[in-house]
Design a protein around this nucleic acid. Structure first.
Lengths: 215, 215, 215, 215
DNA sequence: AATGAATGAGACTTCATTCAT
DNA sequence: GATGAATGAAGTCTCATTCAT
């Protein structure tokens, strides 16, 4: 009898759990489908088929197709922030920035769907995109401010930080599209791209002296 | 008599001219429609209605909808290159770069549709986008090389130039989306954005000596 | 109570039954439309209107228009085989052949749409036509072989049987078009057509001895 | 000057000649197009392109598309009659019939477009088809009557002749479709088809004695 | 008589969403 | 909550025909 109950834990979920589980299945299916075919091809039929549920089920969990699409990027974006944070050491601010830059591309290789979801979201899921942007730029500006406090950056105002952060995000997007896409799968970014980025940042944003004085 | 004939040119076109004129009307209509509603909403019906021709007429001038969409960006992109070139002086390379940066945003104000056409093209008109990208990056790399020859840039390889150019294009795109969009119409880019860009460039890419006034 | 339930079966169908019923409605509508207007004029719009369902419903049951058209003839063809078999007695082989010939024309009168569906299928639903042809000729050759075994036919090889069967089918098609069509509806075949066929068959294919009354 | 006029004969036709020549070009183009792609794919655009004239030109020579299509088969049908007549000897009537049967298939190989034009005409150019049918069956019945007069056929009425002719035409059509079509081009009919036909005819239609008495 | 761009009706098909079971 | 058939608006594209040049 106890064994039966143990089995039940896996196969027989209660109502709330079943509900969450179904929604999660749809989320994962959408990630796969959008990652592989793009938003434009991510029809409700395709997503529900991938999720193994009926089309009607979709509308028990989401108001409409757009609502799901808008939740997709912010959800994965938070995963990305955690991933990058875990990969960032305690070195000098300029070096940390390079680490973040590299970690971004590592994450893309880890979650290959992310690239397409990120890039297309701006036009197919604008409100989801905006939410993601806010998430990221807020965190990023905070980092730059801290670096300024630590003396690693001088002569940039808060407003300029915001602009810089958008430039950095834009640069990453462009580079990822230019260098990371490939026939099947995502490849590493060439070294010269990273070196170009390092030069631009260490000279343009951070105090050049920063690098030399790192213990 | 010659003047009368000149007038006639406008009102009474021959077959070839009428043909070109119709195609041009469709182009202009598409620019407006895509600029206002985006590629996704740019149906042939909408475009032809805007152009004042029948839907069937569309297919006398373009193989299919996508063919027009793919021609849109490269066509306007060339206009942009001319516009920016005309606004670029003969000053030091670093200053020229700032001029180009500013001129880009001026062009956006001049041709408000361009922004959306450019930004969405990557996903709705990929082959047209690629063509545009090639047009621009080729020209841009040439400019950077010339600056290097003139001693205004040091320590960057050709490969790095290509990466830099993609970063610059990406940065502009992001910034334009962040700062230039608005409810109705396109607004000027704030000064602090330009100043942030200038700092990044003059310090990160160009020789500091270029800026004579830097202490 | 049981009777009430039986009635309920008709009025209140379950999901599977409703589904089959809808598909059947579309089939019947297509039969009518193709029979009346021909394949070329059998648009999905016309068929669904006749069936009393929305156009979109069509594509829940058939991959595309052609799939339905290709299924039409084989489906009715099987009905025809049953019809003819039921009308064929146990008389001498030659007489049976005449019975089949007559029964064919009877079936045409029973299902007036069949004629047009059969005749046009070759060009508008080739794969459906081929399937029907295989169904029929296989059965027909088997009949001739049996007659040969019984001594009613001599001096024909299997290959020749196949050719003969095609001739017989062709002859029926031509005759049906020539004699059975009419402004509205299908009429009986004149006696002289049947007598001509009988002579050709009893003398050309079957042993004369079969006809006992021949002097 | 005389030489110039000679050239003119070829290049410069008078109005009537040019007119006829253009119409002829359209006819030939239509034959090729229908023969290759079938009536359904024989759009005015395709035909005029094949003919090397503008679409508008078409309507200077034919009321509409259907008019041309309806003229196609009768025109070639007459060629066929001449061809078969030239191949028919003066032997016994039964042997002549076999010669006609063979000549029909020879003609198909000579004019490969004919097969498709003939077969599809019934449904895509019904009035043209009817005209062709009348042409052929009239001539054919006349032949059978003459054979009856000569004693080669007995016991068939005029009405039965008409039915027989339709059977023969139907048989030929079926056989041609079954045996003569092939991936690219038209192939010869197998011997067993001809032998089956001969048996059916010499026994079923003609006096068997006819063959034996041939010198 | 020749041209070929313009027309617009109509065909097939897709797909987000609804709703009865 | 899950199901999946039904819906119908909307989209792309074809093509016979017209007509001004």
């Amino acid at each position: 009898m106890t064994e039966a109950r143990a089995t039940a834990k896996v196969t027989k979920l209660n109502r709330v759990e079943r509900n969450a589980w179904t929604k999660q299945k749809i989320f994962e299916a959408a990630t796969k489908v959008v990652g592989k075919y793009g938003y434009a091809e991510a029809s409700v039929a395709r997503i529900t088929e991938q999720a193994g549920v009926a089309q009607g089920t979709f509308y028990n969990h989401f108001e409409n197709r757009q609502e799901l699409l808008d939740q997709l990027l912010p959800k994965i974006g938070i995963d990305m922030v955690h991933f990058i944070r875990a990969r960032t050491g305690t070195a000098h601010a300029a070096r940390q920035e390079i680490e973040r830059f590299s970690a971004f591309f590592d994450f893309i290789r880890e979650v290959p769907e992310f690239l397409r979801i990120l890039n297309e979201a701006e036009f197919f899921a604008p409100s989801g995109y905006q939410k993601h942007l806010d998430n990221i730029s807020t965190a990023y500006v905070r980092i730059l401010r801290r670096a300024r406090l630590a003396g690693a950056i001088e002569d940039f105002s808060d407003e300029e930080f915001e602009a810089i952060v958008h430039m950095l995000m834009g640069a990453r997007g462009y580079l990822s599209r230019r260098y990371s896409y490939s026939a099947d799968g995502v490849t590493a970014v060439p070294d010269h791209v990273i070196s170009a980025y390092r030069k631009l940042m260490t000279r343009g944003l951070f105090n050049a002296s920063g690098e030399k004085t790192t213990p």
